[in-house]
Design a protein around this nucleic acid. Structure first.
Lengths: 243, 243
DNA sequence: CTGACGCTTCGGCTACGGCCGAAAGGTCGG
DNA sequence: CCGACCTTTCGGCCGTAGCCGAAGCGTCAG
């Protein structure tokens, strides 16, 4: 009551996400790219009219934004807050009822490197974090990352923009739990800027129709050289049982 | 899909929260205290059998935990993760469709000081944060708090336990948006420890049947002295239009 | 101008989920 | 040991929301 948000407000928002078709659409949009209504209908496994209704409701609830382009309508997540929200829900969903699906050799490319709305995820993201921490460019403490002084200089020479637009509440560093690897990787403004930079200089390139990111040939060597990745960074995590 | 969480998992969780009766129950439990099934039924505005069904589903979804005590059954949130999740949803719900209810003179006690699951909220929480930042015991940067060296010493002399149980992922400091005041206050392990400490030494005491916290007489002077609160900390935020 | 295509609106069907009253466990008090 | 109380289970009612086919707009291509 005295709180600005009532139970029915909370319920309305959660119910909006709480339909399988809509949830699948949001998940599909978590790749960060805008998709057409048709693509989203296919992703959600429903007919076009059904999808249209769902998308209208998502737009009315400000979870997605729409942009007309010719005879297509491109839908995308309304902003980073929405991506974060969905992400947190996914984390909680993975924890709750024991549904820890073992890694599973589903799509190796996705597990290696993918975009998570606006930043990197997958083993590459974890290897980068590990290397940054090892070289004291990033500090990891109690579930949060912080950028060190040397780290700041490092990213600036790399051409990664660090300054926030004035009035930005979004933190520079955020830890984002990697579902496939179960360890935190780097999100926040720095995560976004790094993601953009690596794509802009074509070390990574998006794979059409997927959230996976391909590591280009120059990227291969560039990443290892610039970040000091270990030679075996592509391997699965060192597992105690593998000894 | 290759991610550990599928759309239907996400939907199942969100739909669980997405019912008005269940949402109201979760909200009522955000105070941090365990409530009986009957109390929750009243809070949600449904009959006992209906509430029982909802609670069973919440428990099965691991959002609440139940504890039998005589002929009562006490329900509480399953953990800090759940509180955080609900909190984030409330933040998003407040933002989305413009439903910014002006502060409203609803319950002055709640706006002054209340518990937010396991930490403090309300004007007191904000005044504490402001004072801690002003005295360089807490640093605020880009939406996150960090504890300074002097701050660490300060809290230790205050008797606030800072060390984490081994293997804890929960961050020491987290910013938690205060709905009634629209500014971040202190959550995380430090927020919890501070909350406990202030209640343990009876500077604050819970108001039965409410999330409000009463400031005791010794607390009144103790808080101002220990934290260096300004004399007018109880006043509403300095508003530009008040000049 | 006309046909193809993408998307939305409309109308009707169906089913799932919330709701309650009645009755059945348990648990405590006299 | 019996009655009062809290909670859950059961059974049936009802409304809402999801779903699709058909038809209606807008846009692009030839």
């Amino acid at each position: 009551m005295s709180d600005a948000v009532s139970g029915s407000d909370l319920a309305r928002l959660a119910a909006l996400i709480g339909d399988p078709a809509r949830a699948n659409m949001l998940l599909a949009l978590m790749g960060g790219r805008a998709l057409t209504a048709g693509e989203l209908a296919a992703q959600a496994g429903v007919a076009a009219p059904t999808a249209s209704g769902h998308l209208a409701r998502l737009a009315e609830g400000r979870l997605v934004a729409v942009e007309r382009q010719g005879r297509h309508r491109y839908y995308r997540l309304a902003g980073p807050e929405v991506a974060e929200l969905v992400h947190q829900l996914m984390g909680a969903a993975a924890l709750g009822p024991r549904r820890y699906r073992p890694p599973g050799p589903r799509d190796a490319a996705l597990r290696l490197a993918r975009s998570c709305y606006d930043h990197l995820a997958g083993r590459l993201a974890l290897a980068l974090v590990d290397a940054l921490v090892a070289q004291d460019r990033l500090a990891m403490s109690a579930g949060n990352f912080t950028l060190t002084g040397t780290g700041r200089a490092f990213f600036e020479t790399l051409g990664v923009a660090l300054d926030a637009a004035p009035g930005t509440r979004r933190p520079l560093c955020r830890a984002c739990l990697d579902w496939s690897e179960r360890r935190p990787h780097l999100a926040g403004r720095l995560g976004t800027a790094l993601h953009h930079r690596l794509i802009a200089q074509r070390w990574l390139e998006p794979v059409p129709g997927s959230r996976a990111l391909r590591i280009t040939h120059v990227g291969e060597t560039g990443l290892v050289a610039a970040f000091g990745l270990p030679r075996d960074w592509r391997c699965e995590e060192a597992r105690p049982d593998a000894a």
